[in-house]
Amino acid sequence: MERRSLLRAAVVGAGSMALGFSVSRQALAYPAQTGPSPYGPLQAADANGIMLPQGFTSRVVARSSQVVAGTGYTWHSAPDGGDCFADGTGWIYVSNAEIGSGGGGVSALRFDANANITGAYGILSGTNRNCAGGSTPWGTWISCEEVDTGYCWETDPKGVNPAVRRDAMGRFNHEAAACDPDRRVVYLTEDKSDGGFYRFVPTTWGDLSSGTLQVLKTDLTWATVPDPDGSPKSTRRQVSGMKVFNGGEGAFYRNGKCYFTTKGDNKVWAYDAVANTLDTVYDDNLTSNPPLTGVDNITGAAVGDLYVAEDGGNMEICIITPADVIAPFLRVTNQSSSELCGVAFNPAGTRMYFSSQRGTSGSSSGGITYEVSGPFRTSL
């Protein structure tokens, strides 16, 4: 039996005994193994210090502490999680600011159909350590505070409506959010070494002002958190039998599955909400020559590829294909004191955005936000 099959058999066996998994046909291919990228090897670093596959180019669209070109807006420090939203024939890219002591928030870049920057502005301010988040089907951005008493904030990417704090989504060390429109819930990760994996069930879909906060248990059932405010007892201490995850990070939902990452053990997970199974998509301990360490933000392309950014490692964004092959997609050079985050695609899937949180300086005021364009695949 090949090493991959042996490893998968061990994972399936352990999972089946411990949790009673019913492993789907697709899940039998997990975890992803190191292999060639569908885009080929990385080329020499370009003028921005980014190693990309042949045919791809990069540009800097914003720098922390500097005015965005063609606007009067100064880009925020410590750019973190982000996403893109359709805006007429163009789009908007939003980016969190992971600054504490009330210095956090969210900024936005507006692009026209030709990817020209036509505006930049703030859509949330005065918050704390806005790390990751997630977009909603109704076109808003959930920005999450990564502090023990953190909230979720619902923001308007267009900057028209004021940001609203969503208390019902719980008060804890929020990281990311991923909306599941099929079950009408929002999955939430918690960045603690003994954190939980939550879901928020709104009373009315499309309205996050009220609802029920639940947490996943080891038997893969969902239990209601009695006191979402987390005081005096923190949310992750309130439910007996809660399944513990080691440092929840990014989350992304697609086709019945919520993919999320945990940095403490360098894993990418897939919670299958249809089959009610939990699988390991990637585990650096079960992958030969693992290219991905310091797993962080995650997103997906329409074709089925997942992209995972590194907080540490060798500053790469790695691709995980539907064939369960993992490989570097890009590498940022000479920025070892930074982390990559905010990876997202424009609505057409032709341009990728991401940030280096501390850039070449290693300081939060030196963050750089990039755009990558090129022949992203549209079919397998």
Rank of each mutant, 00 (worst) to 15 (best):
A10E: 10
M17H: 10
M17S: 14
A18P: 11
F21K: 08
Y30V: 02
P31N: 13
P31K: 06
P31T: 11
A32S: 05
P38L: 02
Q43V: 09
D46G: 10
D46R: 07
N48Y: 13
M51E: 13
T57C: 08
A62R: 00
S65T: 13
V68P: 08
V68Q: 00
T74K: 10
H76K: 12
D80F: 00
G82K: 02
C84L: 08
A86F: 03
D87N: 14
T89N: 10
N96Q: 13
E98C: 08
I99A: 08
I99S: 07
G105N: 02
L109D: 04
I123W: 00
I123T: 13
C131G: 09
G134C: 09
G134R: 09
W138E: 01
W141V: 06
C144S: 13
E145G: 13
T149L: 11
T155D: 08
T155I: 12
N161V: 11
A163M: 11
R171V: 15
F172Y: 15
H174I: 12
R184S: 10
R184H: 04
Y187M: 07
S193V: 12
D194I: 08
Y198P: 01
Y198F: 12
F200M: 09
S210L: 09
K217M: 09
D219N: 14
T221M: 02
A223E: 14
D227H: 03
P228F: 10
D229S: 15
D229N: 15
S234K: 15
R237T: 11
Q238E: 13
V244S: 08
E249A: 12
Y259S: 06
Y259G: 07
T262I: 04
G264Q: 01
W269T: 02
L278P: 03
D283Q: 12
P291D: 01
L292P: 05
L292C: 15
T293I: 14
T299V: 01
V308Y: 03
M315L: 15
E316H: 15
I326F: 05
Q335D: 10
N346Y: 02
A348L: 02
F354G: 07
F354A: 12
R358M: 04
G359S: 09
S363H: 05
S364D: 08
S364Y: 11
S373G: 11
